[in-house]
Amino acid sequence: MALCTLEAVTKDYAMGEVRVPALQGVSVQIEAGEFTAFAGPSGSGKTTLLNLVGLLDVPTTGTVRMEGQDVKALSGHALGRLRARRIGFIFQSFNLIPVLTAFENVELALRLAGEHGPDNGDRVRKALVDVGLERFMDRRPSQMSGGQQQRVAIARALVKRPALVIADEPTANLDSKNGEAILEDMRRMNVEHGATFIFSTHDKMVIEHASRVVHIMDGKVLQDERRTPRPLPPRPPANGTPGDGTAA
C-alpha cells in the first residue's frame, strides 16, 4: 500500500471574485522510504501540493489518502492528531518557536504527538545529536545561525518517528554550503531511519539528492522520474562545521 496517494486532485484559491486554479488534476503516489522532490518554478503549485500531502489543507476536488485512509472523512481535530503523530514539517523559514530553546522546540513536537514517556528527554537529545547540535540544545532560535535552526527543525520533525516528513523549500533561506549540509542531514535520516521525505525546491543542486523527482508546472505534473541520488558523503564530525555559528 502506498503511504500517500493523490487522485485527480485540484485546488482553487479564491482571490476576491477571481478563482486561481493552483492545482489542475494531480495524481501522485508516494511510497514509504522515498526521498521525493517536487520540482518546479515559483508559483507552479509546489507548496499547495505539500499542503495537501501534509494534511494541512483539503483539495477542492479529488481524493487524498494517507496510509489508505481518505482524509475527507476526517474532522479538523482528527486531522490535527494525525499530523501530530504521523507527519513532520520542515519549513522554508525554519519557523521554530522563538521563545523555546532548541531542546524545548524538539520536545514540543513529542508532547504534541501525545508522547509523555520517561525517555522523552533522551529521545530529544538523540535527535539533536543526530543533526550535530549537542552543544546548542539550550540556545534559542535567535542565538543560532540559519543552518543550525533548520537542523533543529529537522530534529523536531523526526523526533516522533513520523511516517512522512514534509519540507517546503528547506534550503531556500540558506547559503549553498548550509543548504547542502541540510540536504545531507535529511538524506541521512532517510537512509538510516527509513523516514519518507517529500520536499519542494526549484534548485538544480538540491534535486540531485532526490531518489524521485516530480516536475510540476502550472499546477500539473509534467514528469515523474526516478533516479539514483548523489552518494552521501561520510558523516561529518560532531558539532557541525566551523563557521556554522555565524552564518544566517
Partner: peptide, 14 residues
C-alpha cells in the same frame, strides 16, 4: 499568526 499556524500544523488543538 505564522507561529500559531506552525503549532496548529504540529497538532495543537483549538
Amino acid at each position: 499568526t505564522g507561529e500559531i499556524g506552525v503549532l496548529r500544523a504540529m497538532g495543537l488543538g483549538t
